[in-house]
Design a protein around this nucleic acid. Structure first.
Lengths: 203, 203
DNA sequence: GTCTATATTTGGATAGAC
DNA sequence: GTCTATCCAAATATAGAC
């Protein structure tokens, strides 16, 4: 039968994490305080320890949630097997995901709190997502690590500029398609120029 | 005659700022504390108020110093008037500057501390630098705001990935030249494809 | 599971003596 | 310019009653 107690517990856990996201949006990730968090949900700060071992455990739950959200979106990507089309899909979704929630982007892709390290379990979720992307890129012929690094740099660059210099707008978001075109043209032109390199080069 | 008192004062100010940079590198920008800062330079925390109005004034001095450092490097750029060459120069210097000091990059180009806003005087320094770059790009024929935004996104993306995923290494730094090639090819191909657009297009 | 009570640390900032 | 003395607020965390 349903464990009503466990359900209530989980609901409270979720509420704590949701409130932490909200507070982080206002005061920054480092500015989240257990006092304020507890007050927001009508609790004494000490009671939070029933649900989390401490502040870093809350950060870790936020990190894991962000990774799961990315993975969920990723599972819904409609990839068709065409390099140009799929890179646009991936690029759009990535930049959209990042800019949707700047604090989430900060927590997942930068290291704003030096003393916080995601737990191995949480980190594994993000590793899986990245591996899936890499595998798909490889299936499209993008298997040079340099190309992958260049592509991720373009994606994070657009997201980063959007968040830092036009928060809430779309000044860089709307450049995604053009940036992907640029990248595809680049890797394509090289493939045409040196068709033997892909299989033959060993050093 | 020399004002020995003022010189000593300035030296102490510089020492405070330098120590703040160092502490920020260890504990993060938000983690800098006046207590620790004062202890490092052999002072009581209260004495810092002789030199700065408070914590945000120290952040502001750091921000201004970062901007001056960038401007100083920029003044030494050897630009020759060739699009490809100059973009490489600019791109290399920008990414190098950012990755040289991740905390400085964070303070200058992101907003890690929500309650801190650089003062108008400090901000003006960075505006000047950006304007100079834009003017030079315009002189090279890059005057479409979209192209400028795309170029800055590439620069920050490389810097950001380097800092976040390979701190101290050169995995993304060494991609700068290739990225510039990609960008130049992109804007050049469009210029060839639609030669009339540059002057004629109005909407 | 939540509370009261409390410990402990740390933080930024002010007043006033020297 | 630096100090002592303080203040006040906020932070994380633990113990134990209910």
């Amino acid at each position: 039968m349903r464990d009503r107690r466990a359900e209530r517990h989980q609901e409270t856990v979720d509420e704590i994490v949701a409130t932490a996201w909200r507070l982080a949006g206002v005061s920054g990730l480092a500015g989240v305080s257990l006092r304020e968090l507890a007050a927001e949900i009508g609790m004494r700060p000490q009671s939070l320890y029933t649900y989390f071992d401490g502040k870093n455990a809350i950060y870790d739950a936020m990190f894991a949630q962000g990774c799961r959200q990315f993975a969920a979106g990723q599972a819904a990507w409609e990839l068709v097997g065409d390099l140009h089309t799929d890179l646009r899909t991936i690029g759009r979704h990535f930049v959209e995901f990042c800019t949707q929630d700047p604090v989430r982007y900060q927590l997942m892709f930068q290291r704003p709190i030096p003393e916080f390290e995601p737990s191995a379990e949480s980190f594994a979720i993000s590793v899986d997502s990245l591996a899936a992307i890499q595998a798909h890129l490889a299936s499209l012929g993008i298997d040079d690590p340099r190309d992958i690094d260049l592509f991720t740099a373009i994606g994070t660059g657009l997201a980063d500029q959007q968040i830092s210099n036009d928060p809430g707008g779309d000044r860089w978001i709307r450049l995604v398609d053009e940036a992907v075109d640029m990248f595809v043209a680049h890797v394509s032109s090289r493939a045409r120029a040196h068709p033997a390199n892909r299989e033959g080069q060993r050093r």
